[in-house]
């Protein structure tokens, strides 16, 4: 090849594109959680609503649950909300809501407006529970089994794809 020098930039670029294509499927922001496979941290929170209880450690020992950290001021929470409503309507798994750094009246208005998918809701006003759980932004969701072990974690809004691929199989496996 006499003209290899002229083709070289194209070859380098092609290799880069290969990595980019692969990179689109990777999610660099998702640092794997060290909590997966470990017992869930403590959960003792006062109730948000008068009509629903708050959260206690015992709630993590009764069966499979989905723990969801949300806030009324959080945009992506709005995106995943319809899916949570759907999960609640189909009674696939009870959802425990943790209202993160929110004004109670804002959170109540938000739920009244968009619907309430949660079985129980606790108030994490100062965000300490979120720190214990290693949450670094809302929304985040954890699938916890009957022994209180974290099976899966979703960072950012739960999308149908994530739910179908990473959560549903685990739920089906446990409920056999």
């Amino acid at each position: 090849m006499r003209h290899w020098k002229y083709i070289l930039p194209l070859v380098i670029f092609a290799v880069l594109v290969g990595f980019f294509v692969r990179g689109l499927d990777l999610k660099p922001a998702e640092v794997p959680s060290p909590l997966i496979g470990k017992p869930a941290p403590a959960l003792n929170l006062k109730p948000l609503l008068d009509t629903k209880p708050g959260l206690a450690d015992a709630d993590l020992k009764g069966g499979l649950v989905l723990v969801n950290f949300f806030a009324s001021w959080c945009g992506p929470c709005r995106i995943e909300h319809p899916l949570l409503m759907d999960i609640a309507a189909k009674k696939i798994v009870p959802i425990l809501g943790v209202n993160y750094k929110d004004k109670p009246e804002d959170a109540k208005a938000w739920l009244a407006n968009l619907g309430d998918p949660f079985a129980k809701i606790g108030v994490d006003f100062d965000g300490r529970t979120a720190i214990d759980w290693g949450v670094y932004g809302v929304p985040e969701s954890f699938l916890v089994d009957a022994n209180g072990i974290i099976l899966a974690k979703q960072i950012g809004p739960m999308m149908q794809k994530d739910w179908n691929e990473r959560f549903l199989p685990k739920i089906k496996e446990r409920s056999k």
Partner: peptide, 20 residues
């Protein structure tokens, strides 16, 4: 990415063909 491939890839192909 598709746009990047078309623009950069296209221009580098042109470079490989016409550069010499």
């Amino acid at each position: 990415l598709a746009m990047l491939v078309a623009t950069v890839g296209g221009s580098l192909v042109l470079f490989a063909v016409r550069g010499p």
